[in-house]
């Protein structure tokens, strides 16, 4: 599996990575150089998450029943 670059991660993926970096650092078994890298990554991940939060505009969708009994999504004003 190819490892995505930090800036390409989705908000959820970034959160997951952030959790993993903290867990790895918490374990105390990561060599110093690697932990510095993890820390750097953690900072980048937080920046990414904050950026995504700042950019976010609420999206509201409404579900509508179609004649054949299916359900479609539409934007709600």
């Amino acid at each position: 599996m190819a490892v995505k670059k930090t800036e390409d991660l989705s908000f959820e993926e970034a959160l997951k990575r952030l959790e993993e970096t903290v867990k790895a650092l918490e374990s105390g078994t990561v060599p110093l150089e690697e932990s510095l890298k993890l820390f750097e990554e953690g900072v980048a991940l937080v920046k990414l998450c904050n950026g995504k939060l700042d950019e976010a505009e609420q999206k509201v969708r409404i579900l509508r029943k179609t004649e054949d009994g299916g359900i479609v999504e539409e934007d709600m004003d």
Binding site: L18, V22, L25, L32, C49
Partner: peptide
């Protein structure tokens, strides 16, 4: 969102503490 950002900052601080204690 604001509380979440504070929590993120706390995570960074926590990570920094781990590094400092490692060093």
């Amino acid at each position: 969102t604001d509380e979440l950002k504070i929590r993120f900052q706390n995570v960074v601080n926590l990570e920094a503490r781990y590094i400092v204690s490692k060093i």
